[in-house]
């Protein structure tokens, strides 16, 4: 488990997320899952950005804003520590 996560999490193949710490469940969309898996494998935001640009049809400015917003969301949900 990457250090960034507050407790153990399991992400299924279709985007269902279980937080072992709180018992809460979530759904992530495809892009969300992609980023989440990068986080799980210990990637930092700069590397994740590069991978997003490689993987998806998206311009850097949009990806940067969205990634920022997504991290903030994960932080507010208590899943990660920024």
């Amino acid at each position: 488990m990457s250090e960034i996560f507050k407790s153990e999490v399991t992400l299924s193949e279709n985007g269902f997320l279980f937080d072992h710490g709180s018992g809460l469940t979530y759904t992530l969309n495809t892009t969300g899952q992609f980023i989440f898996r990068q986080l799980q494998s210990g990637q930092k935001s700069k590397q994740i950005m590069e991978k997003m640009l490689d993987e998806f049809e998206v311009i850097e400015e949009t990806a940067r804003k969205d990634l920022d917003d997504f991290f903030r969301q994960l932080n507010e949900l208590g899943l990660i520590d920024l």
């Binding site: 992530l28 892009t31 969300g32 992609f34 490689d54 949009t62 997504f70 969301q73």
Partner: peptide, 10 residues
């Protein structure tokens, strides 16, 4: 490349 949607978690 795959089509892109804004990442989100609900």
């Amino acid at each position: 490349k795959k089509s892109y949607v804004k990442p989100t978690i609900v």
